[in-house]
Amino acid sequence: MAIGDDLTVIREIADILEGIGYVVDYRLLDAWRHGVPQHRKRFILQARRDGVDPMWPELNSERPTVRDAIADLPALHDSTGAREPSVFRRANQCSSEALAILGWIGRHSRSYDAPCARGRQTSI
């Protein structure tokens, strides 16, 4: 997220809020530092009029994984999602044809999940 020229507008908004009695603080936060398993920068402006300074959450020093983020979700059991066949498999269980495709993808692009034949799985 680029703030650049918008910083002038942000400062004007903050000045208006401060002029009518608010305590203002703003920051550009990266979501991974707050428990989200991806980099997402977000501009946050806090304004309080109760005399208390805005508070910010503590930063995480370790990057969370997707597993960390979804580990507490309930099991699917017999729900629709659990009955769906898995299209994406691990690399060590793919057919030789699928492994050839995975090799081509690896040489020609950044990162993909590729479908594998006969329900075999592999990790790349």
Rank of each mutant, 00 (worst) to 15 (best):
V87C: 12
D15H: 00
D6V: 04
I44W: 10
T8G: 11
R42D: 05
D25M: 01
D50R: 07
D5I: 01
G51M: 10
I3N: 03
E62P: 00
S96L: 12
P37E: 06
L99T: 04
P57K: 09
I16V: 06
R11M: 02
R89S: 07
A69W: 05
G106F: 02
G51W: 08
R40E: 05
R67L: 06
G4S: 12
A69K: 02
A47G: 08
G35V: 09
L102C: 13
D50M: 05
E97N: 06
G35K: 06
Y112G: 05
A82G: 10
W32I: 08
E58C: 00
S61M: 07
A2K: 08
I10D: 05
L76E: 08
F43Y: 14
G119Q: 11
T80V: 10
G103A: 02
I16R: 04
A31H: 12
E97D: 15
A14H: 00
R27S: 06
T122Q: 05
D30M: 06
Q46I: 12
R40V: 06
I10H: 00
Y26S: 14
R27D: 02
L76H: 09
R33M: 06
R83W: 12
R40Q: 14
E97T: 08
I16S: 04
P57F: 11
M55Q: 15
D78G: 15
R89V: 00
E12S: 01
T8M: 01
R110M: 03
A117C: 02
A31Q: 14
R49T: 03
D15C: 00
G21W: 02
Q121A: 11
R90H: 12
I44H: 12
R48E: 14
T8L: 03
R11T: 07
I10L: 05
V52F: 05
V23P: 01
D68F: 06
D30G: 09
I101N: 07
E58H: 02
D5C: 01
R63F: 04
P54Y: 01
S86C: 06
L59D: 15
Q46C: 09
H108T: 14
Q93A: 15
P85Y: 09
A114T: 03
R67M: 04
L29I: 12
R27V: 03
A47W: 13
I16K: 03
G103C: 02
R33N: 07
W104C: 08
R107F: 00
R48W: 08
R67C: 00
I10V: 04
F43V: 13
D78F: 11
R110V: 04
R83T: 15
W32L: 06
V24H: 01
W32C: 05
D53L: 13
R63T: 11
V23Y: 13
A100K: 09
L45I: 15
R107I: 03
R27G: 05
G19I: 05
R40H: 14
A2L: 07
N60Q: 15
Q121C: 07
I101T: 12
P115Q: 13
G19H: 02
S96F: 05
F43D: 10
D53W: 11
E18M: 02
E18I: 01
Y26L: 13
D30R: 10
R33E: 00
L102M: 13
